[in-house]
Computed example of a mutant assay.
Amino acid sequence: MFASLFILLYLGHLLADYPLQTDHQAAHKADCGRDGWFANLRHASTHVLTCGLALAIGSAVLDDVDLSAPVAALALAWIGASHAFIDRRWPVQWWMTHTGQTTWAANGGAAHVDQTAHVLALVLAALALVTA
């Protein structure tokens, strides 16, 4: 069941991060102030909705997906919160600065570290869903 859940969550993530993310959200989700937080939380909400829809469809059509509603709600809350945190951009920059990756960060590496952090959050959500 873990593989099915991870693939469903990853699909929801990709949909929310690429075709469903607006230019405004991408440009402003890390900005300080009300507008930045608004863009960030709208983007994170898109993740919650797309991942929730993917889980619902998977639960309806796949034999190996059996979900606990309360645990699914917690997993989706985790996905939204972790995505909002990572997308403030400073956590990725902090990580890269403190792990000796400043040259890689200056040459486009932050996007890779960002996506790796998101995938880690999805793996943790899928693990929580299978252990419930």
Rank of each mutant, 00 (worst) to 15 (best):
L129M: 07
D31C: 03
L55C: 06
W104K: 04
S4V: 12
H98T: 12
H43N: 09
A44M: 09
W94C: 14
A69T: 12
Y10N: 10
D64P: 00
H24W: 10
A16M: 01
H43A: 09
V71D: 00
P19G: 07
D35E: 14
D17G: 04
W95M: 11
G12R: 01
V71E: 05
H98E: 12
L127I: 12
S59Y: 03
W104E: 11
I57N: 01
L11F: 13
W94E: 12
G52F: 00
L127N: 02
I7H: 01
Q115R: 12
L62Q: 02
A44V: 07
D31F: 01
D66T: 15
S45Y: 00
D66S: 14
G108M: 12
A44D: 04
L55V: 04
A128P: 02
T99C: 07
G109M: 13
L41Q: 13
R34N: 11
C32Q: 15
A60N: 05
A72S: 13
A106P: 00
L49N: 00
H47I: 03
Q101D: 02
L62P: 00
N107E: 12
H47D: 04
Q93Y: 09
F6K: 03
A81P: 03
P91D: 11
L5N: 00
K29I: 03
Q21T: 05
A105Q: 13
T102L: 04
D63W: 05
G108I: 09
C51Y: 00
D23M: 08
C32R: 14
L74T: 06
